[in-house]
Design a protein around this nucleic acid. Structure first.
Lengths: 208, 208
DNA sequence: CGGCCTTTTGACCCCGTTCAAACGTAGTGG
DNA sequence: CCACTACGTTTGAACGGGGTCAAAAGGCCG
């Protein structure tokens, strides 16, 4: 039936090349999908948290990038064939997967839009708003703060900036009294102001 | 049954707000989905050409941005309910839509990765490779050249650069003997070199 | 205590932006 | 056929955000 599997930081959970008969759902920890280039740089395209499907792509064609654990992580493993069989008899399940894929699309479009924008401060602020909203869905936030067990390097790879600059943006946000970030715990001090600054509209976040 | 509709340049084909009972398929011309910001800037997140679905999002939750014609365009209009009904009786159709959504995702991830990269030349080169591959699928290329009825401004909004800089990148590519671009017709003079330069891997393009 | 991985800070520099103006080129109407 | 206009392309000059390189200063763990 369903089983779980544990990964330690840095381990690959799924790679676009493989054609695995499994479907992975995050049960604990953080993971990221990323695309790498010859010059060593990488772009993180998705953060995966509890409840997220790692490889929806196993249900159809089309996949890019590698999913790797960013923290110690646990995933639940489903059998792909069992899922596709269930889809055949329950059309609503198929529609649910389409919806999930579309929500992931929407998030990618928002990321793309913010990546194209110029001020990196806005971009990072938006990411914080998004993560807060997503973590809230799965009860991983306390009021306006949450654990963010990621290194600067990871945040930089997600927002398309250098680690050095990411650090400077953070300093600025702290100085502006927008956030605190200590020991991998982020607190949003002025949620309203941050949302306005980042033009955050939670409409694209997956509803519960 | 199915009907068609025509749009002139700039007209909105679909907006994420509306909850239309229709599904649109591009039959002629070019369109783009874009996200806009308060400051007037916009980011194009998808180019739509013949055969592309404008609003897969009508089949589920999750949508961002507005789809607008970039040239005079013709779309075929399908009835959404008819499609969802067909999906219920033909599970393979549902899987096909999942695949389409996943391929769109893959493209978005690639765009995101190139947006995060630093050299804009690479980014634009990659876009040209992608467009060529996609247009080839629908027989709209002649050897290594194709019509590209887009303004610099549009290309700039897609690649996240200013119109001025986009023009300069183009000049450089011309000087390097990589391409010519005249009267909205692009010719790739050194396809192999361009692909290598842009690290283009067509694996993510929708197969025929 | 000694490494190793992160975070922080400083200095320098370049890619890409912005502002502006000039230069096509196509379309419209007299 | 020639203005006149509107839009797109091209070019110049100046500025600045963010990158790169390098080194110091914290944590964290064996």
């Amino acid at each position: 039936m369903t089983s779980t599997r544990s990964y330690s930081r840095g381990e690959t959970i799924f790679d676009s090349d493989e054609d695995s008969p499994e479907l992975h759902i995050m049960s604990e920890g953080w993971a990221a999908r990323s695309v790498s280039f010859k010059d060593g740089s990488r772009q993180i395209t998705d953060f995966l948290i509890v409840g997220d499907l790692c490889d929806l792509s196993a249900l159809g064609k089309g996949s890019v990038g590698r999913v790797a654990a960013l923290t110690p992580a646990v995933v639940t493993v489903l059998n792909r064939q069992a899922v596709t069989a269930a889809m055949a008899s329950h059309p609503n399940l198929a529609r649910a997967f389409i919806s999930i894929a579309l929500i992931e699309q929407a998030t990618l479009r928002v990321w793309l839009a913010y990546m194209g924008r110029h001020e990196k401060t806005t971009h990072l602020g938006h990411l914080f708003c998004e993560l807060h909203a997503r973590l809230r869905r799965v009860d991983l936030v306390g009021d306006h703060s949450f654990d963010l067990p990621l290194t600067h390097e990871v945040l930089a790879d997600a927002t398309g900036m250098s680690g050095v600059h990411l650090n400077r943006v953070l300093q600025q946000m702290r100085k502006d009294g927008l956030i605190t970030l200590h020991k991998h715990h982020l607190e949003i001090l002025q949620p309203q102001r941050l949302r306005e600054l980042a033009e955050f509209d939670p409409g694209y976040i997956r509803p519960l």
